[in-house]
Computed example of a mutant assay.
Amino acid sequence: MLPSPVSSNRRGTSQHLRTFSSSDLKRALSLLRARSRFTNLSIIILGGCFCVSFLYNLAFIFSSSSPSLVAYTPPQSILSIIARNSTLENLSHLVIVPGHAIWTGTQPDQVLDEDRWTLEEYQRGGGSYRISAFVEHIRRGVEITLQDDTSLLIFSGGQTRLQSTTTEAESYMRLAKSLGLFHPDSEQTHREPYFLRATTETYALDSYQNFLFSLARFHEITGRYPLQVTIVGYEMKRRRFEELHRTAVRFPAHQFEYVGIEPTASEEAARIGEVKNGYAPYKLDLYGCHDFLLAKRLARNPFLRFHSYHTSAPELRGLLEWCPDDARMVYDGPLPWDIYE
């Protein structure tokens, strides 16, 4: 058979192309448009997710310096075992007694026995006058608390001695109970009734942490932060607390009181030592997180204990972590007591 004429073949091909163009072109264009809409929507969704993720991570990174960026709620495993006493929720006055040593005794007649105290070497050999100052700090702290129904007494001090299995704070509480200080009008018994408005803070390793950690512990107990703070300690440490520690935590001066009590035979060497080893180093390192003061904290933490206040007092996370390169720079983030000013 002879092949079809060229002109006839071209017409068939041309007609076929026209048929393809007219039937499929609209469908192809529609499909392209649909893909375009889908692609644009995907880009918008992915972009939105990226922005949310970026902002959340940014907030998390800076949450230590700006706690208000992220509202923190402790996990349910913690909340399920916390039931605050409703009578403590309206307390507003924090009374702090910082610890200086650990009492290992159990009976009232052992209170002034130096062998019943776990002491630093420089604290030994001075007779009972130094120990009597510790006891007087405890007595005065209890007295102030009993005189104010809105107060919570916190004995503060960690497990700072390798020779002891207890903390400074717990030993102070045990001493107060042994002497019957919380119930002075009742008969002395071996089982003194429980006093609700006194507790311990068992992580502090120095005087700055005595102050800061007690503020956090007050929040753990009451669910709020104190309106007023009273600290009972050595008179020679007054400047350290009033001028340096109070400034470091930015607590209002008009709502802060320091009650100073010295041993009956105060040593000049002790006062010189306070300036050299306490006031002067903190003046240069306001938060105690560099070199000399940091080394002291490390030496006082032989059992590797660490606190829970990032969880229980999240408003203080920025302050808890504040350690600027300029060691005298005051923390500039938000604090719960800013409203008191």
Rank of each mutant, 00 (worst) to 15 (best):
S4Y: 01
V6W: 04
S23L: 11
S36M: 00
F38I: 10
I44F: 14
G47A: 00
S66N: 06
S68G: 03
L69H: 11
Y72F: 08
Y72R: 12
T73F: 11
A83I: 15
A83L: 08
N85E: 12
S92L: 14
V97N: 01
G99T: 04
P108L: 11
D115W: 13
E121A: 08
S128D: 08
V135S: 12
I138T: 04
R140L: 09
E143G: 05
S151A: 15
T165A: 06
T167R: 07
S178L: 02
L179V: 10
H190I: 07
R197S: 14
D206Q: 08
S207I: 13
R224S: 09
I231H: 05
K237T: 12
L244Q: 01
A248H: 05
V249C: 05
E262M: 07
S266R: 15
E267D: 11
I272R: 14
I272G: 12
P281A: 14
L286S: 07
F292D: 07
A295T: 03
R297K: 11
R300W: 02
L304F: 11
F306Q: 10
H307D: 13
H310T: 13
T311W: 15
T311Y: 05
L316K: 00
L316D: 01
R317A: 14
Y331E: 07
P336A: 06
D338N: 13
